[in-house]
Design a protein around this nucleic acid. Sequence first.
DNA 1: TGGATATCGATATTGTAATACTGATAAAAT
DNA 2: ATTTTATCAGTATTACAATATCGATATCCA
Lengths: 215, 215
Amino acid sequence: MKKDVNLTVQALQRMPYYLQCLRKVKENGIQIVSATAIANELNLNDVLVRKDISMICTTKGKPKTGFIVDELIENIEDYLGYNNTMDAILVGVGSLGKALLGNSEFNKFGLNIIAAFDIDEDIINQVICGKKVFAIEKLQNLCERMHIHIGIITVPAEFAQEVADKFVNSGIKAIWNFALIKLSVPEDVLVQNENLAASLAVLSQHLRNEMDENK
Amino acid sequence: MKKDVNLTVQALQRMPYYLQCLRKVKENGIQIVSATAIANELNLNDVLVRKDISMICTTKGKPKTGFIVDELIENIEDYLGYNNTMDAILVGVGSLGKALLGNSEFNKFGLNIIAAFDIDEDIINQVICGKKVFAIEKLQNLCERMHIHIGIITVPAEFAQEVADKFVNSGIKAIWNFALIKLSVPEDVLVQNENLAASLAVLSQHLRNEMDENK
DNA sequence: TGGATATCGATATTGTAATACTGATAAAAT
DNA sequence: ATTTTATCAGTATTACAATATCGATATCCA
């Protein structure tokens, strides 16, 4: 059973951590776990964990003991859609694109990249990590035929908007965007930006502080 | 000249977008830009943009016109450390690790991965994308000798803490962690988590909402 | 059996980031 | 020259996520 609610983005992003933590706990043979224990493991506030759990889990916790691990795992996996995989296509078979195609981990997270697209004649019709690369012109046809709703953008920033437009025309409703640009899309289409440069910025600032302190 | 302040993580993560936007503006031959224009381009609030700029830029804006594009670019690049590259090492030469090694874009963001490490005998001593792969045992020595302060973790979650410990012992002060686990490190070491599963969770939730609406 | 304790769940408080508001200022228009 | 307008910069407000508090309850231990 799945609760039909929407989490905040922050709460949602904590879920995979809960799941990872719970699986580890389960591996150790533990069947009941408290929100406090999870919080300690993940360096989070215990009330926050309890709140997150209560948002999407039908399970109630028992005072003094906690929650049943299996039920939590099942509830979270259900909510995150890990049990019914989403098919996706990827555009831009560069180094990053290839890495994503080759990342078998994604299947565990309910994502299945079924095909890739590019404009480079040398790559088109090749098979990379078991996935065929098509010419970009075939995108719309394939998406409509296969009812694909997730598109991944791993092209350079200057071509990203163009790809996004093609996506929208092909019925894509959720875009995973690795290009450093804010895409313009209709309201009903979600863009999840993966911003590696932003992460580097955070690292850089910290490093600068550290160096300044020790100089 | 660089302002010696700390931005919030959110503000910091907007900086690469400002930069990308400003470079595009500059390419179009525009020399002065208003915070309002940037905000519109990036779908942000104009006051927010102005505040972010004022935090790290010595430049003052002129009413009715805006800011000098070149000065903004220089200030942001300086702040993000794009002009003096940071050397980094990477542990875990799987599909993701290889992708990061091969991503020449990082140099633009001031990151230079100088070497990689793994435990797989078949990979050790190979050269991947111009970077040599060493046995993990050589990590500490190399880091200390080369004064490396940034470490990238692309190993499976179960080995990530072990790698992090090695990093800490080797003088690493900032860790870019692609494993789905919260690492325990001393206070002065920063961990930037790159959580691809979390992004997928966001996509999944949106898709579920879309499907529910149209059923 | 009774008291101590850990946890739950609900509510209140806090803290912080984003947004709105206000007056000042420089450029453009009349 | 004067008015209008777009923008800046500082302050106030709002919104929301994270945290703290409190009573209730189930388990453990004496």
